[in-house]
Computed example of a mutant assay.
Amino acid sequence: MPTPPMTAAALFGTASTLALSGWVILTLTIAFRWRALRDWGPGLIIPLILSTLYTAIIAIHWWGAEGGFRSLADVGKLFQSDWLLLAGWVHYLAYDLFIGTWIARDAERRRLPRWVLIPILPLAFLFGPAGLLLWIMLRTAFQPSFKDQPR
Rank of each mutant, 00 (worst) to 15 (best):
R111C: 07
D82N: 11
R33I: 00
V24Y: 01
L133Y: 09
G13Q: 11
W115A: 11
M1A: 15
G76D: 14
L133V: 08
M137S: 12
L72I: 07
A87K: 00
G43E: 11
W23E: 05
P129D: 00
G131V: 03
K77I: 00
P113Q: 11
L85S: 10
A130W: 10
I30G: 01
W40H: 13
L133F: 12
L11R: 07
A36E: 03
I60D: 07
I136E: 13
A56E: 08
L84E: 01
L44N: 09
Q149K: 12
W34A: 14
K147N: 04
G76T: 12
L93K: 03
W102E: 06
G64L: 11
Q143W: 10
I120R: 06
T14S: 01
I60L: 05
D96Y: 01
R109F: 11
Q80C: 07
I99V: 15
T140A: 12
L121M: 07
A94R: 11
Q143K: 13
W115E: 10
L20Q: 09
P47W: 03
A65I: 10
I57G: 03
D74W: 04
S16V: 01
P122M: 03
W34I: 13
A65F: 09
R151D: 14
L50Y: 03
R114K: 11
L26C: 05
A56Q: 08
A73V: 00
S145F: 14
T3K: 12
T55E: 03
R110K: 15
P144M: 10
L11Y: 02
I60H: 06
I60V: 14
I58D: 01
F32S: 07
A15D: 00
L117H: 09
L134Y: 03
R139I: 11
A10R: 13
F125C: 10
A124N: 05
L121E: 06
M137V: 15
P144R: 13
S16K: 07
T101S: 12
S51T: 15
P47G: 09
W102Q: 09
P119G: 04
V90H: 04
P150C: 00
A107Y: 11
L78Y: 08
P119E: 04
P129H: 05
L117Y: 05
V24E: 03
A104F: 09
M1S: 15
I136D: 01
I45V: 15
A87N: 04
D96H: 04
T27C: 02
V90F: 06
W135F: 13
K77T: 12
F98C: 05
P122K: 07
L112T: 08
I25T: 08
I99E: 03
P129C: 04
G131C: 03
D148N: 11
A130M: 14
S81C: 07
F32H: 12
I45P: 00
R110A: 14
R111L: 09
L28M: 08
A36N: 10
I25Q: 00
I49A: 10
L11E: 10
S51L: 15
H61W: 04
A87H: 03
A36V: 14
I46S: 03
W89V: 11
A36I: 14
I136T: 12
R110W: 06
L132A: 14
M137C: 13
L134P: 04
G68S: 11
